[in-house]
Structures are given as structure tokens and as C-alpha cells.
């Protein structure tokens, strides 16, 4: 029973990996970028749990900077994905321009709130 569960999990993981290998390279780059942002956010949460929430505004802006970046990157990924029919009329240049504009606004707010 336990053995077969382990094999199932392995099989599932293997199929996911082979399916993901087919993903275009530019989407993989975006995924890497999202993973980086989420990882940074997790580090900050762990740090806050250790030292306390004293400069709370700084903590919030640090966390929101990471999550905001991750969210915007995911939005970009949805828009530049060729398989996504919803955005087939939207040129990737336009999607990237939106991404840049949103990031500028995000970082402006973060810098103001960082204290």
C-alpha cells in the first residue's frame, strides 16, 4: 500500500515534470522570477517571526513588494501565454508595457511606505 502510494506520487511527479518541460522558455523564466519573489517573502515572514513586528510598515512594504511583484509576474505570464485564447489579440509588447507600468506604481508606493 505504502509502496504503491510512493510509486503513484513518483509517477505523478514525473508526468508533471515532463509536461512542464514542454512549457516555452519565456514562461519558465517568468516562473523562476515568481519563485524568487515568493521565496524572498517567506524569508521575511520567518525573519519577522524571529525579531518581532517592530517596524511594521517596513515589514508590510517588504512583503507587499514581493507579493506584488509575484502577482504582476503571474499576470504577465497569463497574457503572454500563447495557449491562452483569452488574450490572443493582445500583443506581448502591450502586455510587457502594462507590466512595467504596474511595477513602477508598485515600487513607488513601496518606497513611500518603506519608511
Amino acid at each position: 500500500m505504502a509502496r504503491s502510494t510512493g510509486e503513484d506520487a513518483q509517477a505523478l511527479f514525473h508526468s508533471l515534470r515532463s509536461a512542464y518541460a514542454a512549457t516555452p522558455k519565456n514562461l519558465k523564466i517568468i516562473d523562476l522570477y515568481v519563485a524568487f519573489a515568493v521565496f524572498t517573502a517567506l524569508i521575511q515572514v520567518a525573519y519577522m517571526a524571529m525579531v518581532g513586528s517592530f517596524p511594521f510598515n517596513s515589514f508590510l512594504s517588504g512583503i507587499l513588494s514581493c507579493t506584488g511583484t509575484a502577482v504582476l509576474a503571474v499576470c504577465l505570464r497569463i497574457q503572454v501565454n500563447k495557449e491562452n485564447k483569452e488574450f490572443k489579440d493582445l500583443p506581448p509588447e502591450r502586455a510587457y508595457a502594462d507590466f512595467v507600468l504596474c511595477n513602477l506604481v508598485l515600487h513607488l508606493v513601496i518606497m513611500n511606505f518603506l519608511g
Binding site: 517568468i30 517588504g62 511595477n103
Partner: peptide
Amino acid sequence: YERFIPAAYPYYGAAFSMMVGFFLFSFVH
């Protein structure tokens, strides 16, 4: 308000690394 609090340097670092990350990502993308 107090600024440049030592305990907050990781948060500053995270915010700036996000900006640098955005810049580098743009090139790669």
C-alpha cells in the same frame, strides 16, 4: 518617524532586490 532602523534592513533589502530583480528580469524577458 525613525528611519534606517537596523532591524528593518532585511525588509529594505527585499524591496530593493525586488526592484533589481524586475530590472534584470526585463532584460532576460
